[in-house]
Amino acid sequence: MKEHHHHDHGHHHPKQPDIEDQPITYYKVMTEALAELLVEKGVITAGELRAQMEEQNSRSPAFGAKLIARAWIDDSFKSRLIADVNAAAAELDIDAGDIPIRGVENTDDVHNIVVCTLCSCYPRSLIGLPPDWYKSRAYRSRTVREPRRVLGEFGTTLPEDVEVRVHDSTADLRFLVIPKRPDGTDGLDEVQLADLVTRDSMIGVSMAKTPA
């Protein structure tokens, strides 16, 4: 059906396995069609679309980990991080976006865990896109009701006397867990500390790693 093959720039594309080997599903087709129509109508430009995809691709848990490592070595920064994550991130030249994010600190007495029961709100500017399980029915349903059992399914067991606080994210307020600094890390510098901070520890389903 070459007559429908709209190559309007007169050259042959090299094969792009990552793009073209995806199955041609209905919603993939819908997304491509939508993107083309919005560009043609001038609602968005192709450059803006590419830049937006690059921007989200660049976001990883490394951003959040930098904030946590700084908080572990600097108590006043930690206080500012708890009060206003977005402003504290700006101090380290990290753009946390416009939606307010609150820091919640894990201590010997309190463990925080974050969920979005209604959908998938998540501090994606600081830890990337949410994993599938965060958006799953099981996690969204049960975390607010039986957080200790859910934590157990992630291999995280807390002493009975530790209070578990569950935070339900919304479109208007998100949360970043400040995990407890692991024991045996006194001699580590900020970069080494950041390596111990995992995505899951900033969601609150696990602890930060202990040094190898």
Partner: peptide, 17 residues
């Protein structure tokens, strides 16, 4: 339907792609 907080469900499978 989407308002599922507090309901019973299956164990969490830590899947991602």
């Amino acid at each position: 339907h989407h308002d599922m907080g507090g309901l019973d469900s299956d164990p969490v499978e830590a899947t991602e792609h």
